[in-house]
């Protein structure tokens, strides 16, 4: 098929001769669009200009704090919160998704209840709840459930620091969203793949990890990337529970020096850097997992392999 299309286009190239002039095509002018472009550009430049030259926006303060140690510590906490809660979130998501697709109605109901609850209540509420867990359970212990003997006990307030509460809230909430994403991914894989695995005696776990999930990645990765980028910014919510992240430290700084706008700019610049890096990474990972956009070089090599385009001859 490929060779046919090349032949046709070659035929077109060979012929251009005298027809070239007669067949020339020009674009129709679109004055309306030019006006729109001019207005939009003017407006954007004017907006940027007024902001940049605004004397109340203290560029010197921004410059001073952009690489400040306190800010960088907050930045590092934000990165940690994002990475850890995404990893825990995807583990929870896979478990919940598998439960949702199980044959047992009890497991399905428990999994649905999980997503129902954690997607149905505000993350802000969940964060404050985890931070105040001691009000509900003053001690945490490991042992026999339902009032049985306990092996170890901790004071909840000692365990649940702002960072731990932030991780709990973000991961558990993320798990609920990832569960839906993973489930859609698993369901996108042809059921015949599972049967093929079963027919050679593979276990459910091997089928999931070696056959289903690798193929589900194509569907999982784009929304996962969006969740990741969203999480980079969502971490700022933990400022309400003293999470020590980028937003928290920025707030602490401006509450002391009243440079509110400047410090919000500092934080925003870092958030933009993080989301930009993540977007670029997402772009490359998606391209790797999407067969429709495999690099041309590889497609060409595949087509050049002997026997590939000459299916009939192989018989």
């Amino acid at each position: 098929m490929n060779t046919e299309t090349t032949d046709v286009s070659k035929a077109g190239v060979v012929e251009p001769g005298g027809g070239e002039l007669a067949l020339r095509v020009t674009r129709r002018p679109r004055p309306g669009r030019w006006v729109a472009v001019a207005l939009a550009t003017l407006f954007t430049v004017w907006l940027a200009y007024t902001v940049i030259i605004n004397p109340n926006l203290h560029w010197d303060v921004i410059a001073e704090y952009q690489f400040d140690g306190v800010i960088l510590n907050g930045l590092w906490v934000t990165v940690q919160l994002t990475l850890i809660s995404m990893v825990v979130g995807i583990v929870i998501g896979v478990v919940i998704a598998v439960m949702q697709l199980s044959e047992s109605p009890v497991l399905r109901i428990i999994a649905s209840a999980y997503t129902w609850f954690f997607r149905g209540t505000p993350l802000l509420v969940q964060l404050i709840f985890w931070f105040n867990l001691a009000l509900l359970f003053p001690v945490i212990s490991i042992g026999i459930p339902f009032d049985g003997p306990k092996l170890i006990e901790w004071q909840t307030n000692m365990v649940i620091t702002g960072f731990v509460a932030a991780l709990l809230g973000l991961s558990i909430n993320e798990g609920a969203y990832m569960a839906e994403i993973v489930r859609a991914g698993i369901q996108s894989v042809d059921p015949g793949q599972r049967e093929a695995g079963e027919s050679i005696g593979m276990s459910n776990r091997k089928i999931l990890t070696r056959i289903i999930l690798p193929q589900a990645m194509r569907v999982i990765i784009p929304p996962f990337g969006n969740q990741f980028i969203s999480m980079l910014k969502t971490t700022s919510l933990v400022s309400v529970i003293a999470g020590a992240d980028l937003m928290t430290v920025s707030q602490h700084l401006y509450l002391a020096n009243f440079e509110v706008i400047a410090l919000l700019m500092v934080a925003s610049i870092w958030y933009l850097v993080l989301t930009t890096v993540a977007s670029v990474a997402q772009h490359f990972i998606e391209r790797r997992y999407n067969p429709g956009t495999t690099p041309v070089r590889r497609r060409v090599l595949a087509n050049l392999r002997p026997g590939h385009t000459t299916k009939g001859a192989a018989a």
């Binding site: 049967e195 079963e198 593979m202």
Partner: peptide, 15 residues
């Protein structure tokens, strides 16, 4: 699974 190991299966759509 042990029983399936010794029973090969070939599907219409290959899988």
């Amino acid at each position: 699974r042990r029983q399936r190991e010794r029973i090969g299966m070939v599907f219409q759509r290959f899988h």
